[in-house]
Computed example of a mutant assay.
Amino acid sequence: MEIGTHTRLLGVMGHPVAHSKSPLMHNRALESQKLPYTYLAFDVRPEELPQAVNGMRALGARGWNVTIPHKVAIMALLDEVNDEARRIGAVNTVVNDGGKLIGMNTDGAGYLRSLEVETGLRLEEQRVLILGAGGAARGVAYALAQSGVQSVVIANRTVAKAEQLRSLLQHLTDVKAVPLAEIEKWIDDRTLIVNTTSVGMHPHVEETPIPGELLPEGAIVSDLIYNPMKTTLLRQAEGRGCVIHNGFGMFVHQGALAYEQWTGVQPPLDVMRQAVST
């Protein structure tokens, strides 16, 4: 599709976003369905987020994705946040509905679809350890707790932030908030370990959120990062006989859910996967 006066704007806001494959994935999907949109990446520093949101509104953008570090801060800048995103306390998708900016969250649903399909695990049997307590952690943790997992431990450098997330989940399952520095006390009995932080993401690919030797043998280790596909954490987990799961499937599924909200069209999942699998 050629860009013209009929073309509407979609995109992703984050800082940084140079690593993002969202433009490639969405533009391939849009081209395959001949839809009149184009999707761009916007590197927005935290202090410039209000201006960026106002700019997207003024330009009549149909919507955009929200990634690190804006998923929580953007909520106060929108006209409306749907019930699920408000309960989670984070937004990863914005839809412009006739000038009204509505915040949503497709992270949790996208993550669960990917996790179940790719690992075959039974969610109700899992004892979960979540590394991090930011916007991505909120969506994933809420979805896991709501799915009926046995228990959740949230480990974060700032315990107060982990406590905020614990309070969100406490009516759904047994949940504890602990300092990341004390992870050794809580990791041994965990069957599903989920890294929701950006530690290990391109270009800092040698970094890892926790020492690999702490990973329980045979656990499922899931990293929301998809660039690189196999982070240092996942390589270390593989070496300890763990089942590994990266963020690729979640990335595709959460993006597909957002795509459907913007376009009203069923997304071409195979095209989206193929676009970002190389």
Rank of each mutant, 00 (worst) to 15 (best):
M1D: 04
I3R: 10
I3H: 15
G4A: 11
G4N: 13
H6N: 14
H6C: 06
G11E: 01
G11V: 03
G11C: 07
V12Q: 05
M13G: 14
H15T: 11
V17S: 07
V17E: 12
K21F: 10
M25K: 02
H26R: 02
H26M: 09
N27S: 13
E31W: 08
T38P: 12
L40S: 11
L40H: 06
A41Q: 14
F42T: 09
D43R: 12
V44H: 07
P46M: 04
E47H: 09
E47F: 06
L49D: 06
P50H: 02
P50V: 13
P50A: 10
V53Y: 09
G60L: 01
N65S: 03
T67A: 04
P69Y: 01
K71C: 01
V72E: 13
A76I: 04
L78K: 00
E80G: 06
V81R: 03
E84T: 12
R87S: 12
R87M: 10
A90L: 10
N92E: 08
N96D: 03
K100T: 12
I102A: 13
G103P: 12
M104Q: 10
G108Y: 08
A109C: 05
A109E: 15
G110L: 08
R113A: 08
L115D: 02
L115P: 08
E116V: 12
V117C: 13
V117R: 09
E118M: 07
L123Q: 04
E124Y: 10
Q126I: 07
Q126A: 09
R127C: 09
L131Y: 08
A133G: 05
R138N: 07
G139A: 06
G139T: 00
G139P: 03
A145S: 09
Q146G: 09
G148C: 04
Q150N: 13
I154D: 15
A155F: 01
N156T: 02
N156G: 11
R157A: 08
T158H: 15
V159N: 00
V159Q: 06
K161L: 11
K161T: 13
A162P: 08
L169M: 04
L169N: 03
L169A: 00
Q170W: 01
T173N: 04
A177V: 11
V178D: 11
V178I: 00
V178Y: 07
V178H: 14
P179L: 15
I187G: 07
L192C: 03
L192V: 04
I193H: 00
I193W: 00
N195E: 04
N195G: 02
G200E: 01
G200D: 02
G200M: 01
M201A: 00
E206K: 05
E206Q: 05
E207V: 08
T208I: 10
I210E: 00
E213N: 11
L214N: 06
I220S: 05
L224E: 09
L224W: 02
I225V: 00
Y226T: 12
P228T: 06
Q236P: 05
G239D: 07
H245K: 13
H245D: 10
N246F: 02
N246M: 05
G247H: 11
M250K: 12
V252T: 13
G255H: 14
A256K: 09
L257R: 14
Y259M: 04
W262I: 08
W262F: 00
W262M: 04
Q266I: 09
P267N: 06
L269R: 11
D270W: 06
V271F: 07
M272C: 06
Q274K: 14
V276R: 10
T278Y: 15
T278V: 14
